[in-house]
Design a protein around this nucleic acid. Structure first.
Lengths: 219, 219
DNA sequence: GCAAAAGTGTTGTCGGTACACCCATGC
DNA sequence: GCATGGGTGTACCGACAACACTTTTGC
């Protein structure tokens, strides 16, 4: 048996909701063994940082995103998951508003948003990581306020509903949705309206709290 | 800055319910820097195994328990969590029936069950790991059938209720409990009775399925 | 016969779901 | 004036919580 050095990496599934669709940010690899393939952004952890710090650092380095909602998910450790050598990877989930812009560095051939439920063929075990992240995001949406990290500081209830529908993958009744969202105190009215659209102006809301808390949003 | 080798370890919080109390198995360290302190069983992962395999292996080695329910929880990675050197650790949750017997090896000064909500002072960051494991176990009990791994193959509804009460930390109404447990199809009657106690014999049940599945048990 | 746990049914309340119409604006 | 999305109230139903007494056994 050859001795192989054991490494620790992080990978991040960054999601946003754009045009009523849940999308994930992927970067395109330049070099073998995954040349041309798409992958979740990530990399090795450094000696004096936690895995969450490493995920933030790698995310900024490879996507240009900073100060995002980020959460550890699960550690993937199949011995052959990385053809370049033994390496476990701690998968993370990140959320950004649709206004976020992606910009990778020149070590990669590109970066773009993809439909989270129909990704292209992915490098490493990133297909499993992505599926796990989507599943966790769905669950978290129902009992936490994480949706705040997917929207601008103010938003209409219609925009919020489209975020929920895109992630849960099912339509929701607007009357019941509004009643529940307001009943649990998830959002507060700002008093402002969104004008300029070709239809009736909608009230603008903001989240009551803009850091992660548990709150039974649905059911 | 000194270069430090990055290691990967696993630790396991093994729970059981005995005498209406949630208990966790701890081993006593023999050597510095944690001489005399109690800790969760665990150890380094080997080159060709997943972290879950490592957790099973370390668990058998250090507690004598085999073939137990085991699940990955969370990766702890504070740079200073291990005074012996940089090492991240993947925490796991394990469940065994109250009949399981603990037996550690001679590298440790002892092994015993402790009340999960009042552990002794623990080595490393195991206090945080244990707290996280208890929290996760409470949550999983309500939407999965994991309780099967805490009981013998057949059991009375009273025994099952005591498991739920011990983990959730609150009394439950026996009428509502029995109705719900049977309504969701968690258990099936065996037709046998438990006799020999100084009171009315109780029906014996078994779990409808004895592998992990999601099922809304409570609320 | 007594202590100890098992077993059983009903009622009230609350929350969730289903559902249709009018409103305000931009063009 | 028309197309588009915003905004609102009610009625039904099912699920959950609360609650007390009788039964069966070992000693």
């Amino acid at each position: 048996m050859t001795v192989r050095l054991l490494g620790v990496a992080v990978d991040v599934a960054v999601f946003t909701v754009r045009a009523s669709r849940l999308e994930v940010a992927l970067i395109r690899m330049k070099r073998a063994p995954f040349e041309g393939k798409w992958a979740l952004p990530g990399g090795r952890i450094q000696t004096e940082e936690t895995v969450e710090d490493a995920a933030q650092r790698e995310l900024t380095d490879k996507t240009g995103l900073a100060d995002v909602y980020l959460e550890q998910l699960y550690t993937f450790s199949e011995p052959d998951r990385d053809p370049q050598g033994r390496c476990v990877s701690v998968a993370h989930l990140a959320l950004v508003p649709a206004t976020a812009e992606l910009r990778t560095n020149d070590k990669y051939a590109g970066i773009d948003w993809f439909a989270a439920d129909r990704p292209p063929s992915l490098a490493f075990d990133h297909k499993a990581m992505l599926a796990y992240a989507v599943k966790r995001l769905r669950a978290k949406l129902e009992y936490t306020n994480v949706a705040y990290s997917l929207l601008a500081p103010t938003f209409t209830l219609g925009e919020l509903q489209r975020v929920y529908e895109a992630i849960l993958g099912q339509p929701l009744d607007p009357r019941n949705f509004q009643r529940r969202i307001q009943a649990v105190g998830l959002v507060l009215q700002t008093g402002e309206m969104r004008t300029g659209q070709a239809n009736r102006p909608a009230r603008l809301f903001r989240f009551a709290v803009r850091r992660p808390v548990e709150i039974a949003v649905l059911t």
